[in-house]
Amino acid sequence: MSIDWDRRHCARKGHITYAPDELRLRSRLHASTAVGEVWRCLRCGDFVLGDPHGTGPADRAPLVPRGRALRDLFILRFLAVERILRGLLIVVAAWAVWKFSNSQDAVRKLFEDDLTAFKPVADHFHYDLDHSPVVDTIRKTFDYKKSTLQIVAAALLGYALIEIIEGFGLWWAKRWAEYLTVVATAAFLPLEVYELTEKVSYFKIGTLALNVLAVLYILLGKRLFGLRGGHKAFEAERRSASLLEVKEAAGENGEPLEPLPVRPRTAADSS
């Protein structure tokens, strides 16, 4: 079952109507009913009661996302939410590392005290806590210099800010955010591949697959770095869609259009 993105969006956000200056085009977008005038929505094509939201030449009609554009916007906002949530989690991790750097001795003492309390249980199950890989890894972190941990915390915070900025930019469908997402995500792909060589997990595989798909989708779909005609082709596609939206909504068949007659201004218009 296919999704009607146009009607779905109009149901949530409302319709968008426009009265073009061209007479024949305007007549196809407009109708009179027993309850008042209605105008055809540029997104879903349904007639809407009330005055149009805008008026002017057809080629100046608002850029109304429709069909594939709405689907693209939905995908971008899904990626935006994922980026923002990831950024917030990394902020928490950065705070934890910074907090740990300021209280290493206290945490070390607490860890060793708790480890001593668990030793009888571990000995009962013949488990050597002192030479456990997990315990050895934790003890190594206690040997890190405070300055090193603070640098790690700052790096994590910087990475988190990039993720959050990406997220908000993608939510608002900003082109600079698409470039930032492609560059930043692609830069970390080798690290994600390296992590998979160390230890494979479904979470890591899923994260890598999502990031690869996001890079390819934004790179090709948004015509970044000159691909598929680049920015000019992207803007031309958007601008041509504006006029086509009006024509398609009005059922235009390519006949020449006549502009509305201009009524001379009178004293009453100035008052």
Rank of each mutant, 00 (worst) to 15 (best):
F74H: 11
A214I: 00
R108Y: 14
L224D: 08
K99T: 10
A268N: 03
T197L: 13
Y202W: 15
N102T: 08
L219W: 13
L260E: 14
V200E: 01
A187M: 12
V200D: 02
E163S: 14
F203G: 05
L216F: 14
Y179A: 02
A94W: 02
P52D: 10
K146V: 11
A96T: 12
E163A: 14
A154V: 12
F125L: 14
S201K: 00
L85Y: 07
L23H: 01
L210S: 14
E258H: 09
P261T: 07
A117G: 00
L73P: 00
Y127C: 00
W95Q: 11
P20R: 05
L224K: 09
L243N: 00
V182W: 05
H231Q: 11
Y127A: 10
L180S: 12
V92C: 02
T116C: 01
H30V: 01
L210Y: 13
G36W: 05
A241E: 13
M1H: 12
R28V: 00
E163G: 02
T33L: 06
R43G: 04
F203N: 03
F111I: 04
L244M: 13
E178T: 02
I205W: 09
L149V: 03
H124N: 12
E255A: 14
P133L: 06
P57W: 08
V246R: 04
G36S: 06
G36Q: 07
G169I: 09
R238D: 02
A177I: 09
A233N: 11
D113W: 01
I151Y: 02
L29W: 08
D143I: 00
R139C: 03
R86F: 10
L25F: 06
G226D: 11
H53Y: 03
F142C: 03
L42A: 10
T33Y: 05
R26L: 14
I151Q: 02
F100M: 05
E37L: 01
L42Q: 10
R83G: 00
R43V: 03
W176Q: 06
E198I: 15
F118D: 11
G206P: 05
K222C: 07
G67R: 10
Q104P: 01
A267D: 14
D72H: 08
P256V: 09
W5Q: 04
L196I: 09
T55P: 00
V38G: 01
S201Y: 04
G229C: 09
K13A: 13
Y127H: 15
P20I: 04
E248P: 00
H30I: 00
F118A: 15
L42D: 08
A154L: 14
V121L: 15
V262D: 11
T141F: 11
S2N: 08
W176M: 04
T266N: 08
P62R: 06
